[in-house]
Design a binder for these strands. Structure first.
Lengths: 150, 150
DNA sequence: ATAAAGCTTCCCACCGGGGGAAGGTCAAGC
DNA sequence: GCTTGACCTTCCCCCGGTGGGAAGCTTTAT
């Protein structure tokens, strides 16, 4: 099977298959005499594994670890489980971060008239000195330093 | 004010300030005779605006649009509001995508013993034939359907 | 005067890819 | 046979954002 077929069968683009080979995520494919890469069903299976892993949000490096676990018939399922749960925690952290942005924006949008007038609490807030700005003190200092002779 | 001070005052690294100038997000700073960039309080304010916008998940391009809206005293607040709400929708889509991954992984982890035995439904699922396989594409739809149906 | 800190530009790296050029190979149709 | 088009190869550049660092100049402090 050529790379195009393997790509279609696995759902991974040919470009990415070459990339995965180049970075060592998959082993170098055997070649025909003319240099074409040749793939087996097992290779396709691996590519599909990678695609699924990526689809679950695992990084390439994490995917490599998952692949190693997958190939290791001696691994303890506890290892896999803890690996998965660690990733769940990472995902939850990202989700919470995005939700925080979302909450803020929804709140701001809620307090914006949304009419033809230019008055806008959204921009006012973004432009405001936030209370979470640790640099506030230093800023004020820098400002006064800058305003006067420096 | 030099770039280092402006960076500290705005919370944007000096590196990023130069980058923002280079890509045209901020206008080129005036220079001293020796070539040092010089920033005013207004510049710092702009940098802080950018930092806040980025912190709310707006891309640099979106941030440029927000900056334009901010500077346009004639804009309608409705424009800002719809812009913000569009971004909220983008964020929600990302959140939903991550939550889908999370649900799947939690479900898989829940069905994994997590003991010393190698048997692991997590890896089994990732290795399963899913969508992307064209030949034998009628296997465990049950598992992924379970993820989907929540 | 000298050393340190800060500034400048320039290049490289990261992740996960996409686009495309230049050139070789294969299979089908005439 | 020969042409054509699809496919393959390597190679390089691009993206978003950010960090690191080298080489060299300027400013400041001692």
């Amino acid at each position: 099977m050529n790379i195009g077929e393997a790509a279609q069968a696995s759902g991974v683009s040919a470009k990415m298959v070459r990339y995965y080979e180049r970075i060592g995520l998959i082993r170098a494919a055997t070649r025909t005499e003319s240099g074409y890469r040749v793939y087996s069903d097992e290779d396709v299976h691996t590519l599909r594994f990678i695609r699924r892993s990526r689809g679950l949000g695992f990084s390439i490096e994490e995917t490599a670890e998952l692949l190693a676990l997958w190939r290791d018939r001696e691994r303890a399922s506890a290892d896999v489980k803890s690996f998965a749960l660690k990733h769940v925690k990472d995902l939850e952290a990202k989700i919470e971060s995005l939700q925080s942005m979302c909450r803020t924006l929804r709140h701001l949008a809620g307090s914006c008239h949304g009419d033809g007038r230019p008055d806008c609490p959204i921009l006012d807030d973004i432009a405001a000195f936030g209370p979470g700005d640790k640099k506030e003190a230093k800023r004020t200092k820098a400002v006064s330093t800058c305003n006067h002779s420096h």
